[in-house]
Design a protein around this nucleic acid. Structure first.
Length: 396
DNA sequence: AATTGCCGCAACCGCAGCTGG
DNA sequence: ACCAGCTGCGGTTGCGGCAAT
């Protein structure tokens, strides 16, 4: 392993390439654990590595980050990836933002190696998310709905495929159509919330996901925030957006005119919803202006601030990870012994760390004080995010 | 047992956006 | 306004493992 990998024999610039050795991993891990990464270009020098900063960054993000979840993808995760891909296309980073502990690279590989095949086997074009027959122009059923017809709410033709989480897509499809007329947007939004999300909670009178097995995945994922952060409880949510469940808050939907420029708010990932048939054109994924709906997803908040990343796999305990509970061991824990447990949410008022740059893609759960900082920043992001939603409600 | 082909994963490459000087 | 450096993203590639022959 040590010297294998592409270009491992390269001596240009005296920089190593190819696979990382355990020694290199350890150096990088130790350095970042102690110092944070700061400017990536200076990391290899300071960490004593003969790598470029880019390579170090990638290694950290894709492998060394303590919050990474290793192992195979659960069926729910796969289904979520498919659903998200139908909306987002090849924007792997945004898809990864919805899958705690997973990296964009990992998801991209999974898509290219497994999911594509599965979709083909189901008769679905993975690029368009249309039925193959439909791709040939025989049918006009909306793409996402058709995808979901085969994979989710409406039942799967393949009984071996478990019924996944309830999906946003049909509703988004409807909403997309309705929102093409700005005058309908507010109504559409509110109806969307009421029809889709409030209904999804009707199976339970409680806001706690664990009380409602029927809660769809995004809620169970993202609502952890509200369980863990006393600032954001169900009461707050219902006050701020009476007809929206917290799932909306985690991916608060804001209707915008079709030609609105993408949002530029730092820390808020804009998700543009387009016709699924267009969504897979990877080269056009940047700067697309055909946005009909934007999901103002507070991904960075959920990614960086709170989650202890309990495993999503159905065969494991789906319970929300509360502060103080032991976290699933990551491989890096084996190097350093026990890894610090997730941040103590109660300690948000503790002094903040210096100017260590936080990892935008995930949380460095080893830096508890950093986390506290992130939580505060995230609270702000959350607030901004919610304000945007509120403003949007008023404007439309 | 040896060879071949396929597959999945890890890592690299190039481009684009952002930011500060 | 321009430029350089940094970061992030998506596409692509190469290696190792494994199954099939």
């Amino acid at each position: 392993m040590l010297e294998m990998g592409r270009h491992s024999g390269s001596h240009k610039q005296k920089l190593r390439k190819g696979l990382w050795s355990p020694e290199e991993d350890e150096k990088l891990l130790k350095y970042i654990t102690k110092n944070g990464h700061g400017c990536w270009s200076s990391v290899p020098k300071q960490a004593g590595l003969q790598r470029c900063g880019k390579s170090c960054r990638l290694r950290w993000i894709n492998y060394l980050r303590p919050d990474l979840k290793r192992g195979t993808f659960s069926q729910q995760e796969e289904d979520l990836i498919i659903e998200l891909h139908a909306v987002l296309g090849n924007r792997w980073s945004q898809i990864a933002a919805q899958l705690p502990g997973r990296t964009d690279n990992e998801i991209k590989n999974l898509w290219n190696s497994c999911i594509k095949k599965k979709l083909w086997q189901r008769g679905i074009d993975p690029n368009t998310h249309k039925q193959l027959a439909e791709t040939q122009g025989k049918n006009s059923v909306p793409n996402d709905l058709r995808l979901l017809t085969t994979t989710t709410t409406l039942g799967s033709p393949d009984p071996s495929i478990p019924k996944p989480a309830q999906s946003l897509m049909p509703a988004m499809d409807t909403l997309a159509a309705e929102s093409s007329n700005p005058k309908n947007s507010a109504t559409a939004t509110m109806e969307f919330f009421e029809d889709r999300f409030v209904a999804s909670q009707e199976s339970s009178s409680s806001c706690h996901p664990s009380d409602s097995p029927g809660y769809f995945l995004w809620f169970t994922q993202n609502s952890r925030l509200f369980d863990l952060n006393p600032e954001f409880n169900c009461d707050t949510i219902s006050t701020l957006a009476p007809s929206a469940s917290s799932s909306i808050l985690s991916t608060s939907m804001v209707l915008k005119p079709a030609l609105d420029p993408p949002p530029s708010s730092a820390g808020i990932t804009g998700i543009s919803y387009r016709e699924a048939g267009n969504s897979s054109s990877s080269s056009g994924s940047r700067g697309t202006s055909s946005t009909v709906i934007e999901l103002q997803s507070s991904n960075s908040y959920f990614d960086s601030a709170i989650f202890p990343w309990p495993d999503l796999t159905p065969d494991k305990d789906p319970q929300i990870q509360l502060p103080g509970q032991p976290e699933e061991l990551k491989w890096s824990e084996y190097i350093h012994g026990a890894f610090p447990v997730s941040a103590d949410i109660q300690n948000q008022s503790q002094p903040l760390h210096g100017d260590i740059k936080t990892e935008s893609h995930g949380l460095n759960s080893c830096f508890q004080n950093q986390q506290a900082q992130q939580q505060l920043q995230a609270s702000d992001i959350f607030g901004k995010d919610f304000r945007r939603a509120s403003v949007a409600f008023e404007q439309i």
